[in-house]
Every structure is written in structure tokens, then in C-alpha cells.
Design a protein around this nucleic acid. Structure first.
Lengths: 338, 338
DNA sequence: GCGTTTTGTCGAAGCGCTTCGACAACTGCC
DNA sequence: GGCAGTTGTCGAAGCGCTTCGACAAAACGC
């Protein structure tokens, strides 16, 4: 493996000149630059990442902390990860993958040992225990989510409150008055994962503002959980005409269940889903949905990290506006039915 | 951020002694060790990863190259990743996540710049273009998959040939003679992804050996693709009594389709799936299946990498024996129906 | 009780890079 | 034509760690 000294010798310059060719931090004449680049190419020189990190105190590596338990919403996690890695590469950075179960210790490990320049965390909880820790790190963090106390911490996410409002408004405009929410699993609420909380808060508030009759229910994974949730919704709000589903996993069993019960979508019950676009369109009924823009969120998270790293100004709280795409799962309720 | 020198000063020893306490490479008296460890704890010392890598030429980082296009079998990819990260951590290593689309260049980049000690690659193709590249790297690689020319390269995977044989034998023992294979998407075959090839090869060979009437078909993703594949199988092999499904995505639409057509599982058609256990049990019919042991494969891949790193002997080709779990999707065919 | 190991510690070199200060050679300007 | 500024390059220091050789002190063998 050739070193910068080998390159310097081959090009007949000093090692520092090679370094400046590489970094562009000082002017180098065209001829010298050409000679150096030729030597680099010929020798197949790649700077040693560790040496570089040691000398410059920059690693060009981002930590991505993902919930790798094989849990719900695996595809969404994957979309985030893909977006983050791709975006990071476009800034000439790499991504170190950590699991959430390492908790605070994991963050501190990679931060203190200077393995990464910045951290991106997913699956943030309302009072996330990692928050105090990341505030003490010398590396900046970007959260995908919005914890209760997010002062001074960069956060990026879909605006789930607005998403809930949007879903309800859409249904209300179509004449629906009695609407149920099928939420994430109780475990997600128990952890107070911020997207669940925020969606629920938006749902309740908008329901109130619009004077709707609504009822909300978490939903255990699996067909049985969906059955139970639906039964509860039906008894608590008889004659409901629409469902908002904020639970990717529940979507399929729910549609099956409605079908089996002879309740047609959208004729008998309208459905608005909050899920990735491709999930919405892969269902037996093409679902009207609000997209979870995992790709955008991941990309923006990386971009935010980069701005933080070079002290450019950022929006500390970046909530992406939801957009609802009409497909085939909502119908207009005629006034006589209201 | 304290350095090893700070620790040494605080403990009243030389930096090298601190280093030896950390690495255990030389005997250190109990008292000295205690003093050093106290100083480390008090100062919150963490060795600088870059400095360490530079001095020792070991990074304690593994590269994991995953197909991050949001493609088929996302959950399986995720399971591999989880297993790899977890296993790596248990060996005190971290994981750098690369995407397959960076191709050979990505591997060479991280290897040449000494960012990683070893590489683990997923989604291997029959004549994978990355193979020549990894042979030239100074870091060892472990493949999850089995390319055509795998001499001298460590490979770990489920034994897909044996899996196909096992599925067919199971069905044959239950009296099935006319059996269709619903394979992965044409794109997977086109890439000659090794698991698809190997499964198909095993299927054809065992079919032959057992004298079965079989027909095989790739299957485009989506309900339409499944419909087409099933139609083809039905016309090419009228009266088939069983399906082997080596396509996680197709499973659900396939069952829906059969149901819609009034073909009951297992009464009218038996099904053996090759998929993760939890997918098999999440279907409307509990499926008899051969598990894809992603967790084991990932763990073994890491373990193999570790052995390679400290020059311990390994099995260069490690094909895990498949195991079939009987659930509710296969029935015995009575002799009169044979 | 004297050589011989073993044990425990230190100092120094060096890993491969970046960066700072120095400086020579130009360039431009009145 | 002399002074300031710019351009292009170099040498050396230093980033924080590991590791090697050296060596004193203790333990061992006969």
C-alpha cells in the first residue's frame, strides 16, 4: 500500500504538496498538480483513513443508529437507511451502523473514540434517554423524530400532527363525521415513540376543531390484534364511516377483515393510510394515503449534519409538510347518510 | 478529550504501560493495573480509533455490503444486517454499511483506505464482478452466497440446493407428483443471484431423481405477476397438486389468488414456502416452510471473518442444512388421487 | 549463591497524514 | 525600480496510539 511519501517521491515533490493537491487548501500549479495526480493514479494511492482522522480530526464517517430489532415497519427503516447512506456518500462520507439496543453507551463509544463526525438517530422517544448524552458529545447529532425537549438539537421528520389533521380534513370534506383511528401497537405508544404521540395529538386536536366524532385505538400486530382493535372501535363508535390507519402492519389484515365481514372499501368504510407510497398501492384496494417520505427525511438529516459540521446555519426543527394522495379508498358520503 | 498521556500522567506510569493495560499484551502488576484503570475511568478516556488504526493497522471495523435498493426481500436483508451488527459487536467490532450500487469501487475505497479489517458481502451473483476485486484486497472477505468460482473465498449460506430437495421430498412423501415452482422475480434470475440459481438447480435435479412432474416459473412482483405465473404453471402442468414458493413477496398475493379462485390450501393445493419463519406464520394459512436462517448465516459470516483475521482455520464453503417445519399447508394425497 | 528466566515498566520510534510557518519567485502598482 | 501582495512549494511538528528493545528487579534452579 503506497503512502503519501511514495507519491511525493514519484512526483518529485514534498509530501505536503501532495496533501495540498488532495485537499485543495493551497494553490498548486497546474503542472505540479498533474504530476502528482499521475503519480497517485499510477501507484493506486488511497490515503489511510486512520492517519487522516488522526491528523485532521475528521473521519468522514456518520453514525446511523437504527432500531434493528426485527420489529414493525422494517421497510421504512430500510428506506431511511438507504437514503442516509446514499446521501452520505454524495458528501463523501461513510456510514457506521449502530443498533439502538446499544443505547447511550454505543453513542458514547463511537463519539468518544472519534470514529464518527456526527450522528443520526432514528426511532426517537418522547423523553429519549439518549438525549442528555448526545447533548454532551462533541459531535453534533441529528434526530429523526421530535422529542419533548428538543431545544438546541437538530430534528427532522414528517409533520405527523399536520398529517393527522390532513387525514381528518380530507375525510370531513367528504362528509365523514364518525371516524376511527387505528394506531401503532401499544408497545410503540408505551415507548412514547414520537411519531405515534404526535399523530395522536394532531388527530385529537383536529377532531375537536372540526367537531367530529372520533375514537382511537392502538393495534397489536397480527390478525388477532387487528380484529380486536376494529371490534373496539366499532363498539365505541357505532356506525363509523371511515378509518385512519397509522399502522403499516395492520393495513393488510384490516382490509382482509373488512372484506371478510362484507364491509366494502370505500363503499361502506373509507380508509386513509399513513404509510409509504408503495405500501399503499400494493394493497388490494388502492389506498388514499399520506406518504411517509423516508427518503427525503433521510437525505435532509444528512444534509443537516453536513451543515452542522461546517457551521452553516440550519433549521433546528424541520417538519416536512405531509401530502395526501387520493386513490381509491375514500368516498363521498351523501348528505342523507350524514 | 483525554489522551493516553493524560491517563499515564494521572496514574504515574508511562503511556506504554497504559497501552499494555488496555491490550493485555504484556504482564502488568495488579496494583499498576488498578491505578491505570482508575485513571481511565476517572478521566473518561477512550482511545482514539484513528490513532489506534494507524499504529496497529487494525480498525476493528467490518464492512457490510448490502443491496440497499428498496427491492424484494427487505426483511431478510434487515435480518442479515441485524445479525451481522450484533455479532460484530460481540467481537468488539463495528460495522460500516455500504451499498451494493457502489460496486467494486466501494469495496476498493474502504479497503485501500484501511477503513475496515474485513468485508462481508450479500446478494452475490453467479459471476459476481466484485469477485476479482476482493481477491486482490489485502483484507479478507466473506460472501453470503456462493458464486460459480469460489475457490479460496469464504462463503456462507443456506444450502439452497438441499432446501429444494427437501421441499420436493416432503411433497413427494405426501403423495404429490405434479408440482410447480414459483420462483423469484426474473430480475433475480437475470442477475443470476446465487440463491435463485442454486434452488432451481436443486429443484430440477431432485425432480428428476424422484421422477416427478414439475414445472418452474419466475414470478414478477405484484399481484399481476403472481397471477401470470400461476396461470402459466397451471397450463403447463394441469392438475398440479402442490406449489413450492421461493419468493417471499409472491406468497401473500398467491394465497389470495388461490383463495379467490376457490382453491383451498391445503385441501386443493399444498404449499411449501422458502422464507423466514415469521413470514410463514403470518400468512392466512400457517405455511409449512423451510426457514431462511438469516440470523445464523449473518452470525457465522462474522465469526468466519474473525477467524480469518486471526489466521484460524475456517471452512471456506459453509452451507447450512435446511430444515423444514410442518405447519398447515401440506396435505397427504390419497392414492386414488395420485 | 550465582547464572538464568520471568515479570514489570519505560523510552523512543514510528504509523501516514495535515497543517503551520517560512520562504523564494513572481506579479502588480505608482 | 522598489515595495507590497500573491503564488507555489517545502520542511518540520505533531495528531494519539502501539510496539520493540532495553533493563532493573524479582523468582527460580541446582
Amino acid at each position: 500500500m503506497p503512502t503519501i511519501n511514495d507519491v511525493a517521491r514519484a512526483a518529485g515533490v514534498s509530501p505536503s504538496t501532495v496533501s495540498y493537491v488532495l485537499s485543495g487548501r493551497r494553490p498548486i500549479s497546474a503542472e505540479t498538480r498533474a504530476r502528482v495526480q499521475a503519480a497517485i493514479a499510477e501507484l493506486g494511492f488511497h490515503p489511510h483513513a486512520g492517519a487522516r482522522a488522526l491528523a485532521s480530526s475528521k473521519t468522514n464517517v456518520l453514525a446511523l443508529v437504527a432500531p434493528l430489532r426485527v420489529d414493525v415497519n422494517v421497510p421504512v427503516i430500510m428506506q431511511f437507511a438507504t437514503a442516509v447512506v446514499t446521501a452520505a456518500r454524495s458528501y463523501n462520507h461513510d456510514v457506521l451502523l449502530l443498533t439502538k439496543d446499544e443505547g447511550t453507551a454505543g453513542l458514547e463509544r463511537v463519539a468518544h473514540s472519534t470514529m464518527v463526525d456526527a450522528l443520526i438517530l432514528m426511532d426517537i422517544e418522547r423523553d429519549d434517554v439518549r438525549l442528555p448524552a448526545i447533548r454532551t458529545l462533541k459531535q453534533p447529532s441529528v434526530l429523526i423524530g421530535l422529542p419533548a425537549d428538543h431545544a438546541g438539537v437538530a430534528c427532522v421528520d414528517l409533520d405527523f400532527e399536520a398529517a393527522a389533521a390532513l387525514a381528518l380534513k380530507h375525510l370531513a370534506e367528504h362528509g365523514h363525521q364518525r371516524i376511527g383511528l387505528v394506531g401503532p401497537s401499544p408497545a410503540v405508544y408505551r415507548r412514547q415513540t414520537t411519531y405515534a404521540d404526535r399523530f395522536l395529538a394532531g388527530f385529537l386536536q383536529t377532531s375537536n376543531e372540526l367537531g367530529l366524532r372520533t375514537v382511537t385505538h392502538p393495534c397489536e400486530p397480527g390478525a388477532e390484534g387487528v380484529r380486536a382493535a376494529l371490534a373496539d372501535l366499532d363498539t365505541e363508535l357505532p356506525g363509523l364511516t371511515a378509518l385512519v390507519v397509522h399502522n403499516e402492519e395492520a393495513l393488510r389484515p384490516l382490509l382482509d377483515l373488512l372484506h371478510a365481514a362484507g364491509r366494502r372499501v370505500p363503499e361502506d368504510v373509507s380508509v386513509v393510510a399513513i404509510c409509504p407510497r408503495d405500501v399503499a398501492t400494493a394493497m388490494p384496494v388502492n389506498l388514499t394515503s399520506i406518504d411517509i417520505p423516508a427518503h427525503d427525511v433521510g437525505t435532509i438529516a444528512v444534509e443537516t449534519a453536513m451543515r452542522l459540521l461546517d457551521n452553516r446555519p440550519i433549521d433546528y426543527t424541520r417538519l416536512l409538510e405531509p401530502s395526501l394522495v387520493e386513490r381509491a379508498s375514500c368516498r363521498e358520503i351523501s348528505p342523507s347518510h350524514r
